[in-house]
């Protein structure tokens, strides 16, 4: 079965995010005074041929831990459809 996975990778809380900091500054500059925090992440879309949803889940988790996210600084989450 074909499974579409949407994977979100972002910095762990507590790790300073240089892009997020810059965007926050720019938003404030544009008058969005309510902005308290900005975090920038990556969205990775994968189309996967897997035996089952559980199989896909296992594979995606593996991909995240091996390559897609760096556990030293990044967290990940994903949804399958």
């Amino acid at each position: 079965m074909i499974i579409n996975a949407r994977i979100n990778v972002r910095f762990k809380s507590g790790v300073l995010d240089p892009q997020g900091t810059a965007i926050k500054g720019a938003l404030k500059h544009l008058g969005f005074d309510g902005v308290e925090d900005v975090r920038v992440g990556k969205l990775i879309e994968i189309k996967l041929d897997a035996a089952s949803k559980e199989d896909a889940e296992g594979q995606i988790k593996d991909m995240c831990e091996k390559l897609l996210a760096n556990p030293v600084i990044e967290d990940y989450s994903f949804e399958l459809s």
């Binding site: 300073l16 240089p18 892009q19 600084i73």
Partner: peptide
């Protein structure tokens, strides 16, 4: 070397991007 875990830590974009 960091990604390969031969050294500890990780690298991010420069502070001023």
């Amino acid at each position: 070397l960091l990604e390969a875990k031969l050294l500890p830590g990780a690298m991010k974009r420069n502070r001023d991007l």
